[in-house]
Simulated assay, not measured.
Amino acid sequence: MSTSSAGPQATTPASPSPSPSLAGPFTGPRTQPRRAWWIAPLAGVLVAVPVQLGAAFLLLMSPMALDSCSSADPCGHTEAAMGASLVLFLLALLSLGVPWYPAKRKSLGVGIGVSLIPLGLTLASIGTLLAGIGLG
């Protein structure tokens, strides 16, 4: 006589393993921000803003460089330099907020390097303007 159980078998549903894309983009441990992470971006902003005020003054005064332009003596390079300088200046204004996140999450060197972006764009704007006017 054989005894066989014809009852229900205990089966467990196979649970699918979560794929890496469902786990989220940052599955590693979160890094804590450094204690004085805000010093580099603040110093960058405090240096860049006065320089940007000077660049804004030069941009506002630069149309006077075109007063001597006439049809006989066109100033095409000056107009192009003024446009390029305006674009660089606007990029410098927009980039004032860029250094804050990398300075908080990355290393000190990255924070200092990224904090120099607004100042560099502002100085490029001034240089482009002065070179186009003929003072550089």
Rank of each mutant, 00 (worst) to 15 (best):
S2D: 08
G120Q: 03
A10R: 06
P50F: 10
C75Q: 12
A36C: 02
G113T: 07
V47K: 02
A6Q: 00
S15R: 11
V47I: 10
T78S: 05
G134D: 05
L42Y: 00
P118E: 14
P8F: 07
E79G: 14
S68I: 06
G76A: 06
G136R: 08
L135H: 06
L66V: 15
G120Y: 02
L130D: 04
L108P: 09
S19W: 12
T78C: 12
S95G: 07
G109N: 14
G28M: 00
A43F: 01
V110K: 02
L121E: 11
M61C: 00
S95Q: 11
M1T: 02
P102Q: 02
L108E: 14
S17H: 09
G113W: 02
Q32L: 14
P74R: 12
T12Y: 12
G120A: 10
C75Y: 13
G28T: 01
L130M: 13
L86E: 06
L91E: 09
P50M: 03
L135S: 08
L59R: 05
G24W: 09
S68T: 07
V110G: 05
I112A: 15
T3A: 04
R34W: 00
L53F: 12
V49S: 08
L66F: 08
V87C: 09
S4M: 03
P99Y: 07
V47E: 00
G97M: 13
L119V: 00
P25R: 07
L93A: 15
V87A: 15
A56Q: 05
G120T: 10
S62M: 09
M82Q: 15
A56D: 04
S70M: 06
S15A: 08
A72N: 12
A23K: 08
L96N: 06
P50D: 03
G54A: 14
S85P: 04
V51D: 12
S68E: 10
L59T: 03
G136D: 05
S21H: 03
S17Q: 06
P74D: 05
L22E: 13
G134A: 05
R30M: 10
L96H: 12
L108F: 15
G132M: 09
T3D: 05
S15Y: 10
P50W: 11
P41L: 07
L129K: 02
G111S: 13
S70A: 11
P25E: 01
V98R: 10
L119M: 05
S85G: 15
A80C: 14
P18T: 09
G113E: 03
L22K: 13
V51R: 11
I39Q: 03
S85V: 09
Q32H: 08
A131G: 10
V114C: 09
G83L: 07
L66D: 05
L123N: 10
I133M: 11
S70F: 00
A65N: 02
L119N: 03
M82W: 14
S21G: 00
M82S: 12
S21C: 01
G24H: 13
L116A: 15
T128A: 07
K106S: 06
F57W: 05
A6Y: 00
G54S: 09
S19D: 08
T11E: 04
S5Y: 09
I126F: 03
L91K: 06
W38I: 05
S17C: 12
A72H: 10
A124K: 03
A40Q: 03
